[in-house]
């Protein structure tokens, strides 16, 4: 199995520790896409959230259109769009047009979403997201399959239940960055069982997202990287599990902190040789596309570029 590396995931956030105007952040995105193309990455991947104070990108396909206009060969993926907040007709209509104008370089990744305030903004009950996904996913898959060019579709998952949903349709997975190898194996087992029960032939391989930072000097870069990682993980943690009604502020912060510590353990950090070896382990599980998250919020430009160039060396190593 040939392993391909994507560069991700970009949310164009104006983070408190480094606030930038969004005109600059999107100009940076287009420059980063050109760098990713020059370094030979499979694609650049975007992420979606709504109504957040730091301006997290809420419209991946519009941003993808700009990247596809700027580049000639680079793929662009949504990693991931929050499908239950959209309409299938809108996503399919947008994606098929942009895939055609992008000459087949658009890939869709879709997932459930989890933040109540985002569902509420669009008048959707968060608790209905699974049922909505059940009804929306087959229709979107059909539209993507019959489009010219076809639009590859991945299903973002962080649990066995979500993997079973994708398995019943035979759609490839886009596994969350926070899952460890044991959890990934369990999830793939659940996926394959569901596909088998549904009489569906599963795809030969899946995609995976990983937090990856390539550096030749860990001691030098870690103090600069840690605040950015903590910001990102605190944000996702706060969205994933808001405080319980009777929970004290102290208890909640402590719970969040534990989550941050646990998730930081999944970071792959090292020089190009070390990182390449770690990524190859995932290929043996059945993942042929790894979207390496090296942008955490809004890293200092020099730090990001150094990591991306290092990841370019990893790409050359693992794809050879």
């Amino acid at each position: 199995m040939t392993l391909r590396l994507g560069l991700g995931v970009f949310g164009m956030q104006s983070v408190p520790q480094r606030p930038d105007h969004h005109v600059k952040l999107y100009r940076d995105l287009l420059e980063d896409a050109e760098l990713a193309e020059a370094l030979g990455f499979e694609g650049i991947w975007l992420s979606e959230h709504h109504f957040w104070f730091d301006g997290y990108c809420p419209a991946d396909i519009a941003a993808a259109g700009a990247i596809l206009g700027r580049t000639k060969r680079l793929g662009v993926g949504t990693g991931v769009m929050l499908l239950p907040m959209h309409s299938v007709e809108k996503v399919a209509g947008d994606a098929t047009t942009i895939a055609r104008l992008g000459e087949g370089r658009l890939t869709l990744g879709v997932a459930l979403g989890y933040r109540d305030a985002e569902f509420d903004g669009f008048g959707v009950r968060r608790k209905d997201r699974g049922k909505l996904m059940d009804s929306m996913l087959p229709r979107l898959a059909s539209a993507c399959r019959t489009a010219d060019p076809a639009v590859p579709l991945y299903v973002g998952v962080a649990s066995a239940v979500a993997a079973q949903r994708a398995g019943r349709l035979g759609l490839p997975l886009f596994a969350d960055s926070t899952m460890n190898p044991a959890e990934l194996r369990q999830m793939l087992d659940a996926y394959n069982d569901a596909a088998s029960a549904a009489g569906v032939t599963p795809p030969a391989s899946h995609a995976l997202q990983r937090d990856v930072f390539v550096t030749d000097d860990r001691e030098r870069d870690w103090p600069r990287l840690l605040p950015e990682l903590r910001y990102m993980r605190l944000q996702y943690g706060g969205w994933s599990f808001p405080p319980e009604p009777a929970e004290s502020v102290q208890a909640y912060l402590s719970r969040l902190e534990s989550d941050v510590e646990a998730k930081l353990k999944n970071l792959i950090m090292g020089d190009a040789v070390e990182v390449a070896a770690r990524l190859r382990e995932f290929a043996s599980l059945g993942f042929d596309l790894i979207v390496c998250r090296s942008q955490f919020g809004n890293l200092p430009r020099d730090l990001l570029h150094s990591a991306v160039e290092g990841l370019g060396r990893v790409r050359a190593e693992v794809e050879s």
Binding site: L30, A62, G65, L68, G69, E89, A92, T96, L101
Partner: peptide
């Protein structure tokens, strides 16, 4: 079934330096 007007305008804006416009269907989403 043809959407993506705004994303297509974003794409065209990377090809030419002039202003770009999109005719879009409101009320559908």
């Amino acid at each position: 079934g043809v959407g993506g007007g705004l994303a297509a305008a974003a794409l065209v804006a990377q090809l030419v330096p002039i202003r770009v416009g999109a005719l879009v269907d409101a009320g559908v989403y």
